[in-house]
């Protein structure tokens, strides 16, 4: 039986938190360069240039790309034949976040209670979602989520009769209202089906899918293409100051749902869309 010690987990999580916040992923770089190439707005071009320049400074100085280093969301895939040694997995993951945010000089943005609002001081707790699978692998995906974009996200319980048209309308309205505040060009994660919380979870997970990768279902891939083109026709542009690049990608996930329902959740991410994945 494969064994992993908690110190190894702590160290990996800490490194991943720092990496996600200081280095732009390859898929996002490609997407932004493509946007820069196609952008027609003068403001938009200058804004995209500033964004690209900022990535270089962050990389060189090894400092965060953005001061909002987020609340950490983690997707953990845990092989049922794996044993964790030296402590609990949950504690190790949280300790890794605390270590990464301390050692990386990342901003601590988490408050302990939504009403009393005292900072926890180490950016924990992270929001962790577990999936138990056959085998002995441990896969950790980290998405530090900034709230400029998180605040523009939305969920709606549509009726089955609303259908595809209702979903399109809700996603586009959410993009239209949210993208100027969410640091466009944004990435849009959409979850359709399941229950209320399943839709929200799929929308978040969809943000972690590499830009340019499509849903395998033909009708969902077509929906992704439609939403991308329609969003970019809104004219909102980089940072909301006009242009043809409002959205870099739309990732849609679907799940079986109830005969009476059509839940849809839209999770918005800024143009950095931080995501790092490792398998231990």
């Amino acid at each position: 039986m494969k064994k992993i010690g908690i110190q190894q987990i702590i160290d990996h999580v800490a490194e991943m938190c720092i990496e996600a916040n200081t280095h732009l992923s390859a898929d996002m770089r490609e997407g932004l360069l493509r946007a820069r190439g196609s952008e027609e707005s003068v403001n938009g071009k200058e804004i995209l240039d500033t964004m690209l320049c900022n990535f270089e400074i962050a990389k060189t100085k090894n400092i965060p790309i953005c001061q909002d280093t987020g609340m950490v969301v983690m997707f953990v895939t845990f092989g049922q034949d794996l044993t964790i040694e030296g402590g609990s997995l949950e504690e190790a993951l949280q300790a890794g976040v605390a270590k990464g945010y301390q050692e990386g000089y990342l901003r601590k943005s988490v408050v302990a209670d939504p009403f009393i609002r005292t900072n926890t001081g180490n950016n924990t707790p992270a929001v962790i979602h577990y999936q138990v699978v056959p085998g002995d692998r441990l896969k950790i995906k980290i998405l530090p989520k900034g709230f400029g974009s998180e605040n523009t996200s939305a969920l709606k319980m549509l009726k089955p009769s609303d259908g595809m048209a209702g979903v399109k309308d809700f996603v586009l309205k959410t993009v239209e209202t949210g993208s100027p505040n969410a640091c466009a060009p944004i990435v849009v994660g959409v979850g359709v089906g399941g229950t209320m919380e399943k839709a929200a979870l799929m929308a978040k997970e969809a943000l972690g899918r590499p830009l340019g990768e499509h849903n395998r279902l033909d009708h969902i891939e077509a929906l992704e293409d439609y939403l991308l083109e329609a969003s970019n026709a809104l004219g909102i542009g980089p940072m909301g100051l006009g242009g043809i690049n409002t959205v870099l990608g739309v990732n849609v996930e679907v799940f079986p749902t109830h005969i009476a329902g059509l839940p849809v959740a839209v999770n918005i991410s800024c143009y950095v869309n931080r995501h790092v994945e490792r398998e231990l």
Partner: peptide, 22 residues
């Protein structure tokens, strides 16, 4: 409107971009 990151040793402030004004 900004909430900066902590300063690294040798720096006076960390990353310091704008937050949502609304």
């Amino acid at each position: 409107y900004v909430g900066p990151c902590p300063a690294k040793p040798g720096e006076i402030i960390g990353s310091a971009g704008p937050t949502t004004s609304g």
